[in-house]
Nucleic acid binder design. Structure first.
Lengths: 139, 139
DNA sequence: CTAGGGCTTCCATTCACTGGAAGGTCAACT
DNA sequence: AGTTGACCTTCCAGTGAATGGAAGCCCTAG
C-alpha cells in the first residue's frame, strides 16, 4: 500500500503519517522507487493511533499504548493507569473551561452589545486587582 | 518600573512580558542602561492582558480587545462579538472533551486493571473500523 | 510525449510561550 | 576597591502535533 491508501483507510492525512514515521510510530518499508510501502499491520497501527489521538491521548501516551498493545505479557493495569491519568487531565481541562465559560457568559450577558462604548466585559478585564491581589500589594 | 516589578504586579512571567513586547502588545520605554522602563499604563495593560488570557482569549483577540479598550468611540457590540465567538469556541471545546471523557470513562470502567493482558481499552483502540467506515470501505 | 496525479524530501510556520547561554548592570557588603 | 548575587539584556532553540508549500521524481493514460 502506498501512503495515499493508508491515509484513506486510517482517515489520517498523508502528512501526518509521514510525521508519524518521522517520530518512529510506524516503520513502513520502502519500494524500489522510494515510495513508502505499508503492510496491513502498519495500516492497523495507524488506525489505532488515529483512534487514540481522537480520544485525546498525547503522542507519548500513544507510543506507550502501542507498546502495551504489542506486548502479549502486558498487565491491563498499565493500560488502565495511562487511561486514568488521561481522564484526570480531561477532567481538569473541562473544569478549567467551565470556569472560563461561567465568567465569560456572565460578562457577555451583562453587555448591552450596542453602539455605545460602555462595556462590562472591558470593565472587568481592566479592573483593579482582586481582593487577594490587593492584600498582597498592600502588605 | 523594571520588568521584575511589572511581573510581580501583573502576575505574568518576565519572559512573557518580553514576548508581549516582541509581538507589539506593550511598548515600554527604555532607561539609559538599556533596561525596559514600564509606566503605570504599561502595568495596567499587562494586567488586562493577563486577565484576558486567563479567560482563554487568543493573543489576537487580546490585541483587538486592547484596541477597543483604548478606543473611546468603540461600540460595545464589537466587544460582545469577540466575547461571544470565544464563548462558542469554549462551548465546542467542552463538548468535545465531554465526549472523549464519556468514551474513555466507559472503557476505563470496563478494564479490570490487573496483571492479566486482556484489556477492553486496547481492544477498542484496535478494533476494526466502525459502522460508517465499513460502509464507506465496502462501497 | 505530455499532462496529471501521486509520491519524495526539506524547510518554514503555527501558538504562546519557555529554557538556557553569555554577558551587562546595580546595590550591598566586605 | 573588589566581589558577590540579584537583576537585567539579547539571541537561539525547543515545546506538541502537526500543517503548508516548494522543488522535483515516478507512473500511467491518452
Amino acid at each position: 500500500m502506498n501512503i495515499g491508501d493508508v491515509a484513506a483507510l486510517s482517515g489520517l492525512p498523508a502528512k501526518t503519517i509521514r510525521y508519524y514515521e518521522d517520530i518512529g510510530l510506524v516503520k513502513p518499508l520502502r519500494s524500489a522507487n522510494g515510495y513508502r510501502s505499508f503492510r496491513e499491520s502498519d495500516a492497523h497501527k495507524l488506525a489505532f493511533l488515529g483512534r487514540a489521538r481522537a480520544l485525546g491521548f498525547s503522542i507519548e501516551d500513544c507510543r506507550n499504548l502501542m507498546a502495551l498493545y504489542e506486548d502479549e505479557h502486558r498487565a491491563s493495569a498499565e493500560v488502565k493507569d495511562i487511561a486514568e491519568h488521561h481522564l484526570e487531565r480531561i477532567d481538569s481541562k473541562i473544569a478549567e473551561l467551565k470556569e472560563m465559560r461561567a465568567t465569560l457568559a456572565h460578562l457577555v450577558d451583562a453587555c448591552a452589545g450596542d453602539h455605545r462604548p460602555d462595556c462590562p466585559i472591558l470593565a472587568d478585564l481592566a479592573k483593579e486587582q482582586s481582593g487577594e491581589d490587593r492584600l498582597e500589594n498592600t502588605a
